[in-house]
Design a protein around this nucleic acid. Structure first.
Length: 451
DNA sequence: TCTGGGGTCCTAGGACCC
DNA sequence: TCTGGGGTCCTAGGACCC
């Protein structure tokens, strides 16, 4: 049985019209005027509209074409992400100064667990004062940006609360009053309930949370699927015990682009995919990541969106490997008629990085092979180095020492050799059924060594 | 000339394994 | 003589979020 906390100890902070507000801060002539940040080309969409632009009906995700029709005199800007990242970092630092448990959701949004803050108690008056102080500090460190804050007994309600008095507002939901507040609201206030779900619920006669609460769990699962149905059943009752989680791990890295005119030239598409693969690889390396699954995304002229993926036996961050695979996936697609979007992504990420495969080639082996060959299922002997050490890993033995199993699963076992006398050696990966690996099984009484 | 870019999570079917 | 059943991995697509 899930429930909520006894106190309003989850805080949600949302910066108001963030990108547009940063632009207005940095360019005083834009203050008080409609500002639209987003794609400025013929196929662009609005990322953020200032409140002045919203007054003309400009909204996020609207095509820039339509925004220009509604508000021709607005300033249309393509965005300066370095400035946004920097302002965001300052805000997150303020939040982390308040509690060690901060979960950023995006550049402009985060949850803070106030149960981990240094507070005498978690009474409404206490958390309200803290929230106002946070809002003031955010205003100060960002040079004048405003934030809306919600505080409640769960993530769900804190997020709803921060939306209630936008912009520049604070709402603290007193424990015990959650359902009364929730019941009259439209179901679309529930995070995860978008247009498709609203439509399905509408067909079932459900518009408000109160009406949602009257639907059985079985019926909800039938309407919207298992996971979402069970989730909605609980949220309709204000039941939500999801914890605030700091440092969520990246699951995928991708680069995509929509082109002003549909692409029809296959060599040109190949060149674009190659460049995108390079950008993905660069970002993987910058984060110390590598991944096994390469995905190509193609949006056709008619907006039909296709994806094709392929999974390697071992992770890579090699631009040539990612590019070759992505181009191969592209070859199998019919792109006659034109392509409006191309994208390359890598998922199935591991926190270890592929070394140059032949950098430590054994004597007698061919070290002149071209760099970054495509990974093969029998890639025993590939060298790996690890970005992080995870304790509790099995010890394995090898002829020249012992090591730890760094990663295993998906048919590949990764081993790092290390002895008492030598510094950590290279990390090697083997197929899980490699007989060489089998003879390195640890004696059962062996205890994990010190790091 | 409707409809971005970067993500997360879920579903469903098939392969494969025990 | 009609056909296990569960678990994991992979692929493709879709909903959703900011």
């Amino acid at each position: 049985m899930t429930s909520v906390r006894a106190h309003a100890s989850v805080l949600h902070l949302d910066l108001d019209a963030f990108f547009a507000a940063v632009e207005q801060r940095d360019k005083p002539s834009l203050r008080g005027k409609p500002v639209v940040v987003g794609g400025t080309g013929g196929r662009g969409v609005v990322s953020t509209a200032s409140y002045e632009a919203r007054a003309f009906g400009v909204r996020s995700a609207m095509s820039t074409r339509e925004a220009r029709a509604r508000c021709p005199h607005a300033a249309y800007l393509s965005g300066r992400f370095e400035a946004y990242r920097s302002a965001s970092a300052a805000v997150m630092a303020v939040l982390r100064d308040c509690s060690p448990l901060v979960e950023p959701l995006s550049l402009d949004e985060a949850f803070v667990d106030l149960a981990r803050a240094d507070l005498p108690d978690l009474e409404v008056a206490t958390v309200s004062a803290l929230a106002e102080e946070l809002r003031a500090r955010v205003h100060q460190v960002t040079g004048g940006l405003t934030a809306s804050v919600g505080v409640a007994s769960s993530k769900f309600l804190a997020k709803i609360a921060s939306d209630l008095r936008k912009p520049d507002g604070l709402v603290v939901i007193e424990p015990g009053t959650e359902l009364a507040l929730l019941r009259p609201l439209h179901v679309s206030v529930i995070p995860g309930v978008g247009p498709a779900t609203v439509e399905r619920l509408k067909r079932a006669g459900v518009h408000t949370v109160e009406e949602l609460e009257r639907v059985s769990q079985e019926e909800l699962v039938r309407l919207v699927g298992k996971a979402q149905g069970q989730g909605l059943f609980q949220l309709a009752r204000a039941e939500d015990d999801r914890p605030v989680v700091a440092d969520r791990e990246t699951k995928s890295v991708s680069v995509e682009g929509t082109y002003e005119h549909d692409l029809t030239d296959r060599p040109q598409m190949g060149a674009i995919v190659t460049r995108q693969a390079g950008e993905v690889a660069k970002r993987l390396r910058a984060s110390g990541l590598s991944g096994r699954t390469i995905t190509l995304k193609v949006r056709l002229y008619d907006f039909t969106t296709l994806s094709r993926s392929s999974t390697l036996p071992a992770p890579t961050d090699e631009p040539a490997t990612i590019a070759r695979l992505a181009r191969t996936l592209l070859e199998d697609l019919d792109t006659s008629g034109g392509v409006r979007l191309l994208g390359v992504g890598v998922s199935g990420l591991a926190d270890w990085i592929q070394e140059d495969l032949f950098a430590t080639t054994e004597p007698g082996e061919d070290a002149t092979a071209e760099a970054a060959p495509e990974a093969e299922p029998d890639q025993a002997g590939a060298r790996w180095r690890s970005a992080t050490w995870a304790p509790g890993m099995d010890i394995v033995h090898a002829g020249h020492g012992r090591g730890w199993v760094w990663g295993s699963g998906r048919g590949v076992v990764t081993v790092r050799f290390e002895t008492a006398e030598t510094p950590p050696g290279p990390v090697r990966s083997f197929r899980a059924d490699d007989p060489d690996l089998e003879r390195w099984r640890p004696p059962s009484e062996e205890q994990p060594a010190e790091q």
